[in-house]
Nucleic acid binder design. Structure first.
Length: 666
DNA sequence: AGCACGCCGACT
DNA sequence: GTCGGCGTGCTC
C-alpha cells in the first residue's frame, strides 16, 4: 500500500504517515482530510512513499481529498519547507499557511464574466503616466527576458513608487502573467483599491487579507489559483497565494514591521517574497522611502538593483519643510509648544488641515501620586497603566487589564493623582479648549474600533469636515489629504532612549512617513517636531530628508558591532509563571548553546539570559537569550541543533519560541 | 495545537 | 471518599 507523508497542522516538528486507500487520487500537494488523535484535520501531502517506519497497525487511512482545492503547486510547498527550515517553525503549521480558510460557505466571489474582456482591455494599457525617473526604474526592474532580480525602489513619500509598481504590474499582465502586490495593512488604505482600479482599468484584481470574510477569502484564493486574478493585492499572508502564471512580486513599504508575522508561525513576508521570486525566476520590486538597512546594504553591495526616485512626482508638491521646536517650552500648554500652536492657528485661518501625531493612545501613559510617588501599575504586567479618561478607566495596553481610576492613592490616601504625559485623548481635549471653533477628530484604535468607523472618519477628513486631526501610527500610512499642510509630531523622544538597537531606524521611518502626509496636494507642507534633542543625527537627517546620510551612519555603527545586516541574530524567548523557572530554563539553554557553539568552531555567540524588555506580561515572567553569528549558514546549522536540544530541556510549563531575524531586541 | 491521562489538594 | 486543578505526553 502507498503511504502519504502528510503535513498536519500541529506544533510537532515532523510529518505523519497515512495509507492511501485504492481509488483515491492523491499526489504531492493534495489537500486531504485525516483523523488525527480524536480530531479530523486538513493536511497537505508532501510526498508519497512505498513504506513507513511505523508498524502498519498504527497507520490510519487518508479519509478524503478536499476536492474544493487544487493540488498545491511545487513553489508553495517549497515555500512552506523554506519557512520551516529558515525560521525554525513546525513543518505542519508552515504548510497550514498555504491553505485558504476551509469549512466556510462556498467561496464564489465575483463572477467570471469580465475575465476575457479584461485581458483585451489590458493590451492597450498605457494609462499610467510616468516621469523619467519612474520610467527608468520600471525598465530596470523588469529584466528582459524575464528573470529573477531584486530591485530596491527608494523614493520619498509622494515620489510615485505606487505608479511604478502598477506600471510594472501592467506590463506583466499584458504578457498574460499575474502580479502579486504586498502592502503592510490593506484595510487602512481604502484609497488603494480605487487607485488600482483607475490605473489598471479592466484588470481583474483580488485582495487577500485577514479582515476578509472566510468565503470571500477562499473565493479570491481560488481566483488566484485558477489564474483568473491578474493582480493579487494583499497583506503578508498573500505571499502564499497560489499564482500559476506569476510574473512579478512588488513589496510596498518593504521596511514595515507588519510584514512580520509574530503570532503562530513566525516569518517575514518580504523575505519569503524574495525567496519565492527566486524559485519562480521572476523579478521582485521592494519599495520604500526609508529602506530597511538589510535591503539598503544589499543595494550598496550591488546585490539588488538600486533604483531611486529623487523628486515628488507632481512637480508642485515639494517635500515639506521640517523644523525642530523645543519640547519643554515655557509657553507650553498641555504639551503643545507655542510654535506648534501658532502654526495650527495659521492653518485654521487659511482653512487648511493640521495633523498632530502622538504614538500613544489613551489620555495619559501614567497616573502618579504627587504625595508619595506611587504609580498605577498593571497587576499582571511589568508596565504602567494608561489613563483612559472617557471610560474613567486605567488600562494595560499589553494584557487588556481594565480598572476604574481610583479616587485616591491606594498607598497613602492622597486624593491628588496626576496624569503624567500625553496621549491622543488628552491632546484632543486640549485642542478643543485651545481652539474652540475648530473641528477636532481623533483617529486611533479606540476611536476606530467600531466597524466602518475608520472609513467614516476617512470620508469626513477628505470632504473637509475636519480641521485638526489627532492620531497614532494609523494615520501615518499612505493617505493623501489634499488640504493637510501641517504635521506636528509630539512625544517621539522616548524612542531615543530605547535599548533596542533598531529603535532609531524605526523612528526615522515612522517620522518620515508621517512627515510625508503634509503637502501632498498643491499646497506646501510644514512639519514641526517637538524634541529635547535637536542635535541628534536622526533629526538632522530628517530636516534634510536625507535618509542616506542617516542610513550610512547607522550601518557604520552596525558594522562595528557585528549587528544586522553585518551579523545575524536569533532570539530564544521564554516565559513561565515563575521567574525561577524561566531563568533555570534559559541558563540551561544558554549552557547547551555555548557547548554547541564551541563544538562548531565558535561562529555563533550565545549571550547570557536577560529579562525581556517587558519583563512580565499577563502574569508570565519573560526572558530571552540572544544568539549572534557572523555567517547566516552557521546560525542556521546552530539553530537546527539547538532547537532539538531545547525540546528536551524544559518542563512544559516554560513556553519558549525561537525568533530568527528578530525585528526587535530589547 | 488539542486532548486525555494521571497525580495531588478541598469539598459534598 | 470523590471532583478537578494543571503538568506531561501523544497524535500517523
Amino acid at each position: 500500500v502507498a503511504i502519504a507523508r502528510i503535513a498536519v497542522p500541529v506544533a510537532a516538528n515532523r510529518l505523519f504517515d497515512y495509507w492511501l486507500p485504492a481509488g483515491l487520487q492523491v499526489e504531492s500537494g493534495s489537500v486531504v482530510r485525516v483523523a488525527f488523535g480524536r480530531r479530523r484535520v486538513h493536511g497537505v501531502v508532501t510526498e508519497i512513499v512505498r513504506s513507513s517506519e511505523l508498524s502498519p497497525d498504527r497507520i490510519l487511512p487518508v479519509q478524503e481529498v478536499v476536492e474544493a482545492l487544487p493540488v498545491l503547486p511545487g513553489d508553495l510547498r517549497a515555500l512552506a519547507q523554506f519557512v520551516a527550515a529558515y525560521y525554525q517553525q513546525p513543518i505542519g503549521q508552515c504548510f497550514a499557511q498555504l491553505l485558504p480558510p476551509l469549512g466556510a460557505k462556498r467561496g464564489r466571489s465575483e463572477g467570471r464574466r469580465a475575465d476575457v474582456v479584461a485581458v483585451e482591455a489590458v493590451k492597450g494599457l498605457e494609462v499610467i503616466e510616468l516621469n523619467t525617473d519612474q520610467r527608468r526604474a520600471l525598465d530596470a526592474a523588469l529584466p528582459r527576458p524575464p528573470s529573477f532580480a531584486v530591485s530596491l525602489l527608494q523614493g520619498v513619500t509622494g515620489s510615485g513608487k505606487t505608479e511604478v509598481y502598477l506600471a510594472a504590474a501592467a506590463r506583466v499582465i499584458r504578457e498574460d502573467r499575474q502580479a502579486l502586490f504586498l502592502v503592510p495593512e490593506i484595510h487602512l488604505t481604502p484609497q488603494l483599491e480605487q487607485r488600482i482600479a483607475a490605473a489598471l482599468p479592466g484588470v481583474r484584481v483580488v485582495t487577500l487579507h485577514s479582515a476578509l470574510g472566510a468565503g470571500k477569502r477562499l473565493g479570491h484564493w481560488l481566483a488566484a489559483a485558477r489564474g483568473e486574478a491578474q493582480l493579487v493585492v494583499g497583506t503578508r499572508l498573500a505571499v502564499f497565494a497560489p499564482l500559476p502564471r506569476l510574473g512579478l512580486i512588488a513589496v510596498d513599504e518593504e521596511h514595515d514591521t507588519s510584514f512580520r508575522q509574530q503570532d503562530g508561525v513566525r516569518y517575514n513576508a518580504r523575505d519569503v517574497a524574495i525567496y519565492r521570486a527566486r524559485l519562480r525566476d521572476v523579478p521582485v520590486l521592494l519599495g520604500s522611502a526609508t529602506p530597511s538597512l538589510e535591503s539598503y546594504a544589499q543595494a550598496q553591495r550591488g546585490r539588488y538593483r538600486w533604483l531611486r526616485l529623487s523628486q515628488r512626482a507632481k512637480a508642485r508638491a515639494a517635500l515639506p519643510s521640517v523644523q525642530l521646536v523645543p519640547n519643554r517650552d515655557p509657553g507650553s500648554l498641555e504639551g503643545l509648544g507655542s510654535s506648534l500652536r501658532a502654526a495650527i492657528a495659521e492653518r485654521l485661518a487659511r482653512r487648511e488641515q493640521s495633523l498632530l501625531f502622538v504614538n500613544r493612545r489613551g489620555f495619559a501613559p501614567s497616573l502618579l501620586c504627587v504625595a508619595c510617588g506611587w504609580k498605577a501599575m498593571c497587576p499582571r504586567c511589568a508596565a504602567r497603566l494608561v489613563v483612559h479618561r472617557e471610560a474613567a478607566a486605567l488600562r494595560c495596553h499589553h494584557c487588556g487589564h481594565n480598572e476604574r481610576i481610583p479616587a485616591g492613592c491606594p498607598d497613602c490616601g492622597n486624593r491628588d493623582l496626576f496624569p503624567l504625559g500625553f496621549g491622543t485623548q488628552r491632546l484632543e481635549r486640549a485642542l478643543g479648549q485651545l481652539f474652540p471653533g475648530a473641528r477636532v477628530m481623533r483617529v486611533d484604535r479606540d476611536s476606530t474600533r467600531r466597524r466602518g468607523a475608520f472609513a467614516a472618519m476617512f470620508r469626513a477628513i477628505t470632504s473637509g469636515d475636519v480641521d485638526i486631526l489627532v492620531g497614532t501610527q494609523m494615520l501615518a500610512k499612505g493617505h493623501d489629504f489634499a488640504r493637510l499642510t501641517l504635521v506636528g509630531i509630539l512625544g517621539c523622544d522616548n524612542a531615543l532612549y530605547s535599548a533596542d538597537f533598531r529603535a532609531t531606524e524605526r523612528l526615522f521611518a515612522l517620522l518620515e512617513q508621517v512627515a510625508g502626509r503634509a503637502g501632498r496636494g498643491a499646497l506646501p507642507g510644514e512639519v514641526l517636531v517637538q524634541t529635547d534633542f535637536p542635535e541628534h543625527p536622526l533629526f538632522a537627517a530628517l530636516v534634510d530628508h536625507d535618509y542616506d546620510r542617516f542610513a550610512e551612519a547607522l550601518l557604520a555603527e552596525r558594522r562595528s558591532l557585528g549587528l544586522p545586516p553585518f551579523g545575524h541574530l536569533a532570539l530564544l524567548a521564554a516565559e513561565a509563571t515563575s521567574r525561577a523557572a524561566v531563568n533555570s530554563f534559559l541558563e540551561r539553554a544558554a549552557a547547551r548553546g555555548n557547548a554547541l557553539a564551541t563544538a562548531h568552531g565558535k561562529h555563533c555567540e550565545v549571550f547570557p539570559p536577560v529579562a525581556a524588555a517587558l519583563a512580565r506580561r499577563a502574569g508570565m515572567e519573560r526572558g530571552q537569550v540572544l544568539v549572534q553569528a557572523s555567517e547566516r549558514r552557521a546560525l542556521q546549522n546552530f539553530l537546527a541543533r539547538w532547537r532539538e536540544d531545547l525540546e528536551r530541556l524544559g518542563p512544559r510549563t516554560v513556553r519558549w519560541s525561537l525568533e530568527v531575524d528578530p525585528p526587535a531586541v530589547g
